[in-house]
């Protein structure tokens, strides 16, 4: 185990974590403010990837694709908020789960009707398709570095939005003192729709950003959705800071387990069973992490103060 390999794998873990953060941030924000659990968040991610891929293919510009993907996520989220989610605010979580589960079925089939059953193409822009030598002898994909930058930028933007703006103040107040905010004459409906659209934009952005490294196909949303759940459970529901911490922790745990467990176990067990045990442990590393965190802190690392 060399120091450079360790550094590289750590960077890989951070990059994966950042991608998870883009998904988890919207999910946790929506939950924190509206107390809504939205399973269809994965569908927004998928929609972003498909729309982004189509726009990139038509225009030849990845940047336009990113904008279109995020816009599609926001637009569909807004539409969902107005037609469905709005009716679920006063319902219990069970109804929310089922309604948004029904939405998943609908969206997956809808995408199949529009784009067909086969995965579609979405490539990184030419200037990001190469590698950058981050350490001597360690070329790193430029696109992955770009994903890290975009994720950090999104996190900073969210931090600024929530911490420094009037909207953010209302959002923060809305989570804890909904009645007070209403009494101040703020239209909570508009506020909620806005938050939902922001969450949708982040999911769409995550989808289109994931496109060049992951398959753009039906069902892609649910895969990452479940990991995003683990992230926000670990980080603490409703907290953007928690989502960041959870995402990085999950990303690192997952990558490190896969990278270093086989090496560690080969020192302890015969090679054939070491690979097997390592693979099995690697499969459940994230869930074990979640179990441990919950056993110690049931409300997650950064619980929301309700």
């Amino acid at each position: 185990m060399t120091a450079t390999l360790f550094a590289e794998q750590t960077l890989n873990g951070l990059q994966f974590g950042v991608m998870l953060f883009l998904m988890a941030a919207g999910l946790t924000l929506i939950f924190g403010i509206m107390d809504v659990i939205n399973l269809a968040h994965g569908s927004l991610y998928m929609a972003g990837a498909f729309v982004g891929g189509t726009v990139t293919a038509r225009t030849g510009s990845f940047l336009l694709g990113v904008v279109a993907g995020a816009a599609a996520g926001a637009l569909i989220a807004l539409l969902l908020e107005l037609t469905v989610i709005r009716r679920l605010y006063r319902r219990d979580h069970l109804d929310q789960v089922l309604a948004t589960y029904a939405l998943i079925l609908t969206f997956n089939e809808g995408v199949k009707v529009i784009w067909g059953p086969a995965p579609i193409f979405l490539a990184a822009p030419e200037m990001l398709s190469g590698t950058v030598e981050i350490l001597p002898g360690v070329p790193y994909p430029a696109y992955r570095l770009a994903v890290i930058c975009a994720g950090v930028a999104a996190a900073l933007f969210l931090g600024w939005l929530i911490g420094r703006t009037r909207t953010g103040m209302l959002i923060r107040a809305g989570t804890t003192h909904r009645e007070t905010v209403q009494a101040l004459g703020v239209d909570v409906g508009v506020l909620f729709a806005l938050v939902f659209a922001i969450g949708g934009a982040l999911a769409g952005l995550a989808g289109v950003m994931a496109g060049p490294v992951l398959a753009v196909q039906v069902g892609m949303g649910e895969q990452i959705l479940i990991l995003a759940f683990v992230v926000i459970v670990v980080g603490g529901l409703g907290s953007v800071k928690g989502a960041m911490a959870g995402a990085l922790l999950v990303g690192l745990a997952d990558t490190w387990a896969r990278a270093f467990l086989p090496v560690l176990l080969r020192g302890l067990l015969p090679p054939s069973s070491a690979d097997q045990v390592a693979a099995n442990l690697g499969s459940v590393a994230v869930y074990l992490l979640m179990a441990v965190v919950l056993a110690v802190r049931p409300q997650g690392l950064f619980p929301r103060h309700a």
């Binding site: 683990v230 529901l237 869930y287 074990l288 409300q299 997650g300």
Partner: peptide, 18 residues
């Protein structure tokens, strides 16, 4: 069961995945 509400939903889901 140490948790409530949405936590519980997500945790049971994650354990089932495991």
């Amino acid at each position: 069961l140490r948790t409530r509400g949405v936590h519980f939903i997500m945790i049971t889901l994650a354990f089932a995945q495991m």
